[in-house]
C-alpha cells in the first residue's frame, strides 16, 4: 500500500489534476462575467450581483470546511492529487469512494487491503474517472435541451415559477434526508437538528440583520453534527 500511495502522490498526477481544475476555474470566471452582463440587461444592479457573489462565498465556508476534513480521509486511500482533483471539481466524496471501491472489486481485491497493487489503484482511478465522465458527457451534450422542458412545466406563469423551483428543492432534499432519517441513528439526528437550527437561525436573521444569513448554513451544519455525535 505504501508503494501504491507513493506513486499516487507523484508530481505528475498533481499536474494532471491542475489541468482539470483550471478548466473549472476558467468556466466559473467566464460564467461570472457573462452573468454580470446578462444581469445588467435584466435590470439587476451591480451591487446586487456582488452581494450574490459574497453570499455564495460565505455560505460555502461551512460545507467547504466539511469537504476539507473528508478529503484528508480520502487522501490516505486514493492519494493527494486524485482526492484534490475529484473534490475540488467533478465529484463528491461518497460517489468517489464508492467508485474507487467498485474498481478494486472489479480487479478482484479488497480496496486498500492485501493485494491492492498499482494496477488495482489504476483500476480504482479508471472507475472514478469513467463514472464522472458519464455526467460530464451527458450534461455537456443535453444540458441545453433541458430548458424547453422547464418552460413547458412552468407554462409561462411567472407566479408559479418560484413554487416550481421550491417544490424541486423540497423534492431533492426530501429524497436526500429520507435515507438519513430511515437510519434512525446519528444521521437522523443530524437531519433533525440541522433543520431546526436552520429555521431558528434564519428567523433570527430576518428579525435582526440579513448579513447574518450566509453564515446560518455553516452554524446549522455544526449544530446538527454536534447533536448527532451526542445522541447518535
Amino acid at each position: 500500500m505504501e508503494e501504491v500511495l507513493q506513486v499516487a502522490n507523484e508530481w505528475g498526477i498533481w499536474v494532471a489534476g491542475i489541468v482539470v481544475v483550471i478548466i473549472c476555474v476558467i468556466q466559473a470566471y467566464l460564467y461570472l462575467k457573462q452573468c454580470f452582463k446578462a444581469g445588467r440587461e435584466l435590470g439587476l444592479e451591480d451591487s446586487q450581483m456582488k452581494q450574490g457573489f459574497w453570499v455564495g462565498a460565505k455560505t460555502a465556508i461551512g460545507p467547504a470546511f466539511a469537504v476539507f476534513i473528508i478529503m484528508v480521509g480520502l487522501m490516505s486511500v486514493i492519494g493527494g492529487p486524485m482526492a484534490w482533483m475529484r473534490l475540488a471539481v467533478i465529484g463528491a466524496a461518497p460517489t468517489e469512494l464508492t467508485a474507487a471501491q467498485l474498481g478494486a472489486e472489479g480487479y478482484g481485491v479488497e480496496f486498500g487491503g492485501e493485494g491492492y497493487d498499482l494496477q488495482a489503484m489504476a483500476t480504482s482511478w479508471w472507475t472514478m474517472i469513467i463514472n464522472g465522465v458519464g455526467w460530464l458527457v451527458l450534461v455537456g451534450l443535453i444540458g441545453h435541451k433541458l430548458e424547453p422542458v422547464r418552460e413547458k412545466m412552468s407554462g409561462g406563469d411567472p407566479s408559479w415559477l418560484p413554487v416550481l423551483s421550491g417544490a424541486g428543492m423540497l423534492g431533492v432534499f426530501g429524497y436526500l434526508i429520507g435515507g438519513d432519517v430511515l437510519t434512525l441513528e446519528g444521521p437522523m439526528y443530524a437531519v433533525i437538528f440541522g433543520a431546526i437550527s436552520m429555521v431558528i437561525l434564519l428567523q433570527v436573521a430576518e428579525k435582526t440583520t440579513e448579513k447574518f444569513k450566509p453564515y446560518c448554513l455553516g452554524i446549522a451544519m455544526v449544530t446538527g453534527m454536534i447533536f448527532a455525535i451526542i445522541l447518535g
Partner: peptide
Amino acid sequence: GFRDYTAPAIFGAVYGQFSM
C-alpha cells in the same frame, strides 16, 4: 462527526430553509 454527519445536517438545514 464531520465525515458522517455534516452531509445529513446540511441536507436537513436546506430542507428547513425551504419548509419555512
